[in-house]
């Protein structure tokens, strides 16, 4: 019974891990010509300023997106849980971006960001702010992409947090109410501590997915554009090396490096979780 999945995972997931590690010691050029090169890919990688910049960009994305997104999701979730009318309506609308194709989201937002005809610039102009080239100005492109990412993931994570909040037993709130705790106090002393398992889940998954940002950047930033270097994430840089520059060996080394970073990050998270996550 486990055969199909085990074999499938073996071929398409287990073998690739070994293959990537192996390939990272080769030069794999155009039309798959390969030659052994030892550690050269890794040496080159550590000296490659573009790699460091894309790693830096990736960190910037994480810092810009993850906290803001979680904060928004948490606020929305707790507001929705405060016994207001039309809860399910709000929930449905907020979830819509989560079922919308990333490529389409990127397309619409690029159109809204457009430096010459975009609606966002038109609104800025109303307030006397001159038009900005959001997606080709290296200083603005990264925050602009982050906004899109927050927009498209906040609703999804809000659902998970909401489920976590709803799972909190009523008795805690009743006890708090008897003690005369205000709603704010209830939030900080009951909701927040008890929703930490869900928060932890959201944190881990959004960290990993933000670390692997691809769709939005690929779709929104012009390929050899000015803003590319300032916005490309590790995964985009990996993709370009593997499939555009046909440097598959070097790309493999990048993949290994990315994997190591994500691993370290996850281990730190796991170790740290006992300090702040409450399992009832």
């Amino acid at each position: 019974m486990i055969a199909p999945v085990t074999i499938g995972l073996g071929i398409f997931y287990f073998y690739p891990v070994l293959k990537v590690i192996l390939d990272s010691f080769y030069h794999v050029g155009a039309f798959n010509k390969r030659s052994w090169c030892g550690l050269e890919n890794y040496q080159k990688m550590l000296k490659d300023p573009v790699m460091w910049q894309s790693l830096g960009n990736t960190c910037k994305y994480v810092l810009l997106i993850v906290p803001a997104m979680i904060l928004i999701a948490l606020v929305l979730a707790s507001l929705l849980n405060s016994g207001i009318k039309g809860k399910s309506f709000f929930r449905v609308i907020y979830f819509i971006p989560a079922v919308t194709m990333g490529a389409a989201v990127a397309m619409v937002w690029s159109w809204m960001y457009n430096g010459n005809y975009g609606i966002i610039n038109a609104i800025l102009n109303l307030f006397g702010i001159p038009s900005q080239q959001f997606l080709s100005n290296p200083d603005l492109a990264l925050p602009a992409i982050s906004v899109v990412s927050i927009w498209s993931t906040a609703g999804y994570n809000m659902i998970i947090l909401l489920a976590g909040i709803q799972g909190i037993s009523r008795t805690y709130y009743e006890a708090a109410a008897i003690d005369g705790a205000s709603r704010f106090r209830q939030f900080f002393h009951v909701t927040l501590p008890l929703v930490t398992p869900s928060l932890f889940f959201v944190l881990i998954t959004s960290l990993i997915s933000t670390f692997q940002m691809f769709d939005t950047i690929y779709m929104m930033i012009s390929k050899s554009g000015l803003a590319m270097e300032a916005t490309q994430s590790m995964v985009v840089y990996f993709y370009r090396n593997a499939f555009e520059y046909s440097k598959k060996g070097y790309a493999s080394a990048l993949a290994v490096f990315l994997f190591v970073i994500i691993m370290i990050m996850t281990v730190i998270q796991m170790k740290g979780q006992s300090k702040w996550v409450n399992y009832e």
Partner: peptide, 14 residues
């Protein structure tokens, strides 16, 4: 635990 982009290249070659 492995990020999905890690598999892409060998999967493609397969």
């Amino acid at each position: 635990m492995v990020p999905s982009s890690f598999f892409i290249l060998p999967q493609y070659q397969l």
